[in-house]
């Protein structure tokens, strides 16, 4: 029996999260297959064949898979699932769409967002937005698993796997892909940004939120984030919300500006590598999770920080 990885790619290259999923797949000490779903994906398959430890690369190539629907990909996986003990993917919007559907069709549970494989059928995963970790054991014959990529190192190249193909059925009548819109913002995406600058209700208005935080975000090439309180007050759109009910982030650098540190917010950012808090209230709970706390008026401290970053030694 083998482990099948559902690859993430952009049509030209594998995404790094796929290489991180290969490291997770090694936990089972079984042969590792990678499935590439898409259209004109020969280059991606070639790249996957070079990954150390991968024994087989499978292409599922069809015009309608250029923008794959969950209905189609789940159907494909179910057809071949009998050959695998584990079907695994990095925990992304694509796999979160496809794999629960696959699991239900196979009548098995799915284990989502795994941060460690602790046995052939047991896993460590965060619950309550990472405030608690749970160890769970599955009783199913096929394990359907997504892994949190940042918990695993990426595998490098040192392999020569075979490349095979699966026949692809006609597309589903249940759904049609109509189009997509790519974000054109100069700022990086919140969920994957290297740095995040977040603001709370202390910013006082939508105008000040933008005027104070945007220069800092630009200087750090950071994404902008906001607390639920700031979103509720209308200072920031709700797609900026960081927290349990917003986006959960774990950047290299997280700067919380005028953020009190409610549980709902810290649950979504406390896995950041370095956390900076700037707040006038020395007793604000945000300082309990911050590596570096600065008790100061944000309207003075943030512009000073921007100026200091501009004038200090180049990176």
């Amino acid at each position: 029996m083998s482990v099948l990885i559902l690859a993430e790619h952009d049509g030209h290259k594998l995404k790094k999260v796929t290489r991180q999923a290969v490291t997770a797949a090694r936990s089972w000490q079984a042969s590792i297959h990678i499935l590439i779903v898409g259209h004109h994906i020969a280059a991606v398959a070639q790249e996957a064949a070079g990954i150390a430890g991968v024994t087989e690369v499978i292409q599922a190539d069809a015009a309608h898979l250029a923008h794959p629907l969950a209905e189609d990909v789940a159907g494909l996986l179910v057809e071949h699932a009998g050959h695998y003990q584990v079907i695994l993917a990095p925990h992304t919007r694509f796999s979160k769409n496809v794999l629960p559907r696959t699991a239900a069709l196979l009548d098995v549970a799915m284990i989502a967002d795994v941060i460690a494989v602790t046995g052939p059928k047991s896993y460590l995963r965060p619950i309550y937005a990472g405030n608690i970790t749970a160890t769970v054991e599955s009783s199913d014959t096929i394990q359907i698993v997504t892994v949190r990529a940042s918990s695993y190192a990426a595998v490098t190249d040192d392999g020569t796997a075979n490349i095979a193909s699966w026949a692809v059925s006609a597309t589903t009548p249940l759904a049609r892909w109509l189009g997509e819109k790519r974000n054109v913002s100069d700022r990086p995406e919140l969920a994957t940004a290297r740095a995040v600058v977040s603001g709370g209700r202390s910013l006082g208005s939508a105008e000040q939120f933008e005027a104070v935080l945007a220069p800092l975000a630009e200087e750090l090439k950071a994404a902008l984030g906001a607390t639920r309180a700031a979103v509720d007050a209308g200072y920031a759109p709700n797609d900026l919300q960081v927290g349990q009910t917003g986006t959960v982030v774990a950047p290299e650098l997280y700067i919380a500006v005028g953020v009190s540190g409610a549980i709902q917010h810290t649950a979504g950012m406390k896995d950041s590598k370095v956390i900076v808090a700037i707040n006038q209230d020395p007793d604000a709970p945000i300082f309990q999770v911050a590596d570096y706390g600065l008790v100061a008026n944000l309207f003075e401290a943030v512009p000073a920080l921007v100026a200091a970053l501009r004038t200090s030694a180049p990176r």
């Binding site: 694509f94 249940l174 892909w177 109509l178 189009g179 819109k181 790519r182 974000n183 969920a191």
Partner: peptide, 10 residues
């Protein structure tokens, strides 16, 4: 979706 949105008819 990662990096944007997609529109589907169901």
């Amino acid at each position: 979706i990662d990096g944007g949105t997609e529109t589907l008819a169901l």
